[in-house]
Amino acid sequence: MSDLQLQHEVEQFLYRQAELLDGKQWQAWTGLFTADGIYWMPPDASYKTWDGQPAIFAEDRNLMAVRMGRVLHPDAWSQRPLWGTNHVVSNVVIRKAAKNGDVEVTSRFHMMELRRDDVRHFAGQYTHHLVKVKKGYAIKLQRVDMTNAQAAYDYVLQVWV
């Protein structure tokens, strides 16, 4: 595969990841992860591992299932109001491309969120460890370093960024 083709395929995958989040396709989104995949948002960019440390998110597929179950529950009160997000993903740089097709890639994201009449912005860097599978890629690790991770949260984050 040429570099250009690889870049294109990886970018398309990252865009799809973001589109599933914005489309609230939670089941399809969690399905992007490998069976042992991890979604991780550290409180600070200096963190080296998600394991055994404070984390904003540090979720395997089981915990993702809990979060998904909560937001889909009819009595998740905070999910009732008008709420939506819009991600833009860019600056996609492939950091490592292994012979077996696995890829480590970083990108930048900007997410605008609307909740009732309030707009919030979250932005930062994605680091994806992608495993090559038949249909393209699966996420072994999605690390989300938010520029505003340490800032006070006006309300909370209900789903993945």
Partner: peptide
Amino acid sequence: EPIYRRSLAYYNLVNSPATLINADDLE
């Protein structure tokens, strides 16, 4: 260490800004 990790799980799941619990309290 495992005792620390046990309460850490509560810190992350209940008390982090991505809390599965307090989201509905704040509402």
